[in-house]
């Protein structure tokens, strides 16, 4: 999938990846890859600046933790981030239903 098509949706997908619980960056990228069956081709390097921005926006928090013997930065969804995810889901449902209706061709 072209990365241009994903622009604007990466934040929502990152927030969704944290809904089940805290994850470190690599686990988030693995989640995105697995859930999309490898269709997401966004450069994983752009994930970390996005996480930092979401942290400063108050939607995620982070802390160093030790995972399988290695020190990693782990991210967690905040209550505000949970609400934002709900809003993004509603927006996406509306957008996709409109686009599907128009592109459906019948």
């Amino acid at each position: 999938m072209k990365s241009d098509a994903l622009r604007g949706h990466l934040d929502a997908m990152v927030l969704a990846s944290l809904e089940a619980g805290p994850r470190h960056g690599y686990a988030i990228s693995e989640y995105l890859s697995r859930r999309s069956d490898g269709a997401l081709t966004v450069a994983t390097g752009t994930l970390y600046p996005a996480l930092h921005r979401l942290e400063k926006a108050g939607w995620v928090t982070s802390e160093w933790s030790t995972v399988t013997g290695r020190r990693r930065r782990t991210y967690e969804l905040t209550a505000s981030g949970q609400r934002a995810l709900g809003d993004r889901r509603a927006e996406w449902a509306q957008t996709s239903s409109v686009v599907t209706a128009v592109l459906g061709g019948t």
């Binding site: 450069a43 994983t44 970390y48 600046p49």
Partner: peptide, 19 residues
């Protein structure tokens, strides 16, 4: 998979600049 340096560096500069 991480992306070419030229591709990801602007986002890193912006994140560090913001901090």
């Amino acid at each position: 998979a991480f992306g070419a340096v030229e591709q990801v560096a602007p986002a890193y500069r912006a994140a560090l600049g913001l901090t």
